[in-house]
Write a protein that binds this DNA or RNA. Structure first.
Length: 436
RNA sequence: CGGGGCGUGGCGCAGUCUGGUAGCGCACCUGCUUUGGGAGCAGGGGGUCGGAGGUUCAAAUCCUCUCGCCCCGACCA
C-alpha cells in the first residue's frame, strides 16, 4: 500500500475526549473516529487490525470443530419473552419498534436466537453435540460508555453456543473452548489468564473470564504469581489431553474481584499478585437455563425427552484491538504484535523526488510484496521527522528507512519497532530479514 | 442513574468573572528557501462561539431551557 494513496488521518495532538492510552492512540493513529458515545467508525488501519484479530479467532474456533454462521443484529422481542429476558434485561437493551409497531431489539447477545434455531432443527440425541458460532455486532446501551472501543455500546463479538446431551459431554466442550481461548490469545501476543468469574445475568455454574493484565485495566484481579512469570505456561502442551491442560491452569489461584477468596489468598503469601485486568473473553456453562425455558429438547437413546446442556463462549473482538494496545505501546505509539499488525512493515522514502531514493524504494516495495510481506510505503512528500513519527505511532513491527545518505553506500536501515534496534543492511538483506 | 467538568475553524486552546459583533498554535492553500526525528519566511482561506429562547443600544461573554461529549462512582463483553 502506498501511503500517498491511503486514508490514514493521523493526529499530532490528542483529541480532548480521549483519556486512556489505547483510545488516544487509536484516534491519533487514524484507526477510528467516534460517531457518538460508545459508537465508532473503523477507518482502514483500524479495520485491518480488527480483521486480523477476527481471523485468528475464526481459525481457532474452526480448529475445534465449531461451525461459523451468522445471526441477525435485530431480533424480535417475542423470542426474548420466551426466555423471560425481555423483561429482566433492563435498559441496557436497545428496544426498537418497526413500522408495524412490532417490538424488536438490537441484540446484546444471541442465546435466544441460537436456541430457537437449534430446537426447531434438532430432535434426536444422535444429532448431538452441536457447536456453532458467529462474529457479529452487538449493542448494549451502557449507561456510561468509556475507554474508547474497550467499553463501547456497539461492539464486535465472537459468540459460540454449544448443545450437549449430558454434563460430561458439556464439560468436554467447555474444555475445548477453554484451550482454544488459550491458543487464540497466545497467537495475539497476549497472556490471558483464565479466572473464576461470576456468570452474570446469563447465569450458570462453570464460568471463566479470560483477562489480560494492564495498568489501565477496568477491574482488579488477584492471581498466583506464576501466571506472570509464565515460563511454565510455555511448557504446557496445548495439544495434549484437554483436562490436563485445563487443570494446569485452573489449579492455580486466579479470581476476578468479586470472586476473590481471602482464605486462599492468605495461604499464597508472596505468591499473591493483585493487579488490574481487561476481560477479553468469557466462557460459560449454563446447563439447561435456556433449553428449559425455550424447549430445546431431544429424544434420548431410550426414547425419553432430554433437555440439552448448553454453554456460550464469547470473545470481544473489537475490545481486543484496544486491549492489545493497552498491553503493547510506548511513548511514541503503538507496538503491534506481528500477528495482528495492520501491515508487517513500513517502508519510508526519506526523499521522494530523489531518483535514487525513488528507484530504491520502488524496487524494495515490489520485492517485499513478492516475498509476501504486507508493506506500507510512505511515499508522501513530507519531512523525515513527520514520517518517523507517524510510523512509530501506527506501530508496524518493522520499518525500512531509505535515504540518500545510506544509499550512497548501498545501505538501508531496518528498525524493529518493539526493541528500537536498528541495523544497516543492503536492500536484499532487508527483504530476507523481513520475509524470514 | 448520582456527583463533577467541558462544548469557540479539522485538532489543541485563549477570550466568558469585569457585555462593545473573535484570537493563538498546529493542520490546510500559494510562493520561495529548506530536507535523516513533526522546517523557515512571506502571503492566504476557513468559525459568528453546541442549539433555542430571553435581558440589552449591543451577547462567545448575563439569565432560562435544551442537546452533546468527557471524568469519578454504581453497572457491564
Amino acid at each position: 500500500m502506498r501511503l500517498s494513496q491511503y486514508f490514514l488521518p493521523t493526529l499530532k495532538e490528542t483529541p480532548s475526549e480521549a483519556q486512556i492510552v489505547s483510545h488516544r492512540l487509536m484516534l491519533r493513529a487514524g484507526m477510528i473516529r467516534q460517531s457518538s458515545a460508545g459508537i465508532y467508525s473503523w477507518l482502514p488501519l483500524g479495520f485491518r487490525v480488527m480483521k486480523k484479530i477476527e481471523q485468528i479467532v475464526r481459525e481457532e474456533q474452526n480448529a475445534i470443530g465449531v461451525h461459523e454462521m451468522l445471526m441477525p443484529t435485530i431480533q424480535p422481542a417475542d423470542l426474548w419473552r420466551q426466555s423471560g429476558r425481555y423483561d429482566s434485561y433492563g435498559p441496557e437493551m436497545l428496544r426498537i419498534t418497526d413500522r408495524h409497531d412490532r417490538d424488536m431489539l438490537y441484540g446484546p447477545t444471541n442465546e435466544e436466537q441460537i436456541t430457537e434455531i437449534f430446537r426447531d432443527a434438532v430432535k434426536s440425541y444422535r444429532d448431538l453435540p452441536q457447536h456453532l458460532y458467529h462474529i457479529q455486532w452487538k449493542f448494549r446501551d451502557e449507561v456510561r460508555p468509556r475507554f474508547g472501543v474497550m467499553r463501547g455500546r456497539e461492539f464486535l463479538m465472537k459468540d459460540a453456543y454449544s448443545f450437549d446431551l449430558d454434563f460430561e459431554a458439556a464439560k468436554t466442550t467447555y474444555n475445548k473452548q477453554f484451550v482454544a481461548y488459550l491458543k487464540t490469545f497466545k497467537r495475539m501476543g497476549l497472556t490471558a489468564i483464565p479466572m473464576q468469574a461470576e456468570s452474570g445475568p446469563i447465569g450458570g455454574d462453570m464460568s471463566h473470564e479470560f483477562v489480560i493484565l494492564a495498568v489501565t485495566g477496568e477491574s482488579e484481579i488477584a492471581c498466583h504469581r506464576d501466571f506472570l512469570d509464565n515460563d511454565w505456561l510455555d511448557n504446557i502442551d496445548l495439544e495434549g489431553d484437554l483436562q490436563v491442560v485445563v487443570n494446569a491452569f485452573t489449579d492455580k489461584y486466579a479470581a476476578t474481584d468479586e470472586r476473590r477468596d481471602p482464605e486462599i489468598e492468605k495461604t499464597l503469601g508472596d505468591d499473591l499478585v493483585v493487579a488490574r485486568g481487561i476481560e477479553v473473553g468469557h466462557i460459560f456453562y449454563f446447563g439447561k437455563k435456556y433449553s428449559e425455558t425455550m424447549g430445546a429438547v431431544v429424544t434420548g437413546p431410550n426414547g425419553e425427552d432430554v433437555t440439552v446442556e448448553m454453554g456460550s463462549y464469547g470473545i470481544g473482538v473489537s475490545r481486543l484491538v484496544g486491549g492489545i494496545i493497552e498491553a503493547s505501546h510506548d511513548d511514541d505509539g503503538i507496538i503491534w504484535p506481528q500477528s495482528v499488525a495492520p501491515f508487517q512493515a513500513g517502508l519510508i522514502n526519506l526523499k521522494p523526488g530523489d531518483s535514487a531514493c525513488d528507484e530504491a524504494c520502488e524496487a524494495l516495495y515490489q520485492k517485499l510484496i513478492d516475498a509476501g510481506v504486507d508493506v506500507l510505503m510512505d511515499d508522501r512528500d513530507a519531512r523525515a521527522g513527520a514520517k518517523f513519527a507517524d510510523m512509530d505511532l501506527i506501530g508496524l513491527p518493522w520499518q525500512v528507512v531509505v535515504g540518500p545518505k545510506g544509499l550512497k553506500d548501498g545501505i538501508v536501515e531496518v528498525k524493529n519497532r518493539a526493541t528500537g534496534e536498528r541495523q544497516e543492511v543492503t536492500p536484499e538483506d532487508a527483504v530476507k530479514k523481513l520475509a524470514g
